[in-house]
Amino acid sequence: MTTDKDNLRTRIQQAIQSQKRPTVTVLSSLLAIQDLVGYIPEEAIEEVAAHSKTSINSVFGVASFYPNFRFTPPGEHSVEVCWGPTCHLKGATEILESVLGKLGLDSEGDTDDGKVSFRFNTCLGACSQAPVISVDHELYGNAKPDIVLNLLNSLYEKETLN
């Protein structure tokens, strides 16, 4: 247990140290940590506070302001459905419905089994391929409900194979 925690702290410190930009801020450190660890654990708030010589309260103030920072570990896989204007016109609603149905969610969030974190995305930048869905940061264009369901199923199958 202690080693897990120490390990987490080491990874957080690595993330903070890995920033090569000339100005390191509270925000840039938080971003670096979220990139490496996947979320902002309590330890990250403490480490960033120590590194930027401010209090945990101030760091938490920054972290809690941005919806993109999460304070709990994400699911094993990330699924994002684009609902930007183009995707919307090209049928993102159906895709959303089938994805939410499959995952058993009402809106953004994590599945109960912790397998998948689902989020809306306002534009994945591939409007020509609309509607677009991203699974583990890989884009799939011209999505259809059945293709999407297959994709999601494969996520679960991978697990059982392993």
Binding site: S55, N57, S58, V59, F60, G61, F71
Partner: peptide, 19 residues
């Protein structure tokens, strides 16, 4: 001291402490 801060997002921002 920075013992209190503004937490949460615009519209829901409020005074509080870390977590």
């Amino acid at each position: 001291d920075r013992a209190i801060t503004l937490i949460d997002k615009s519209g829901r921002s409020i005074i509080g402490t870390a977590a």
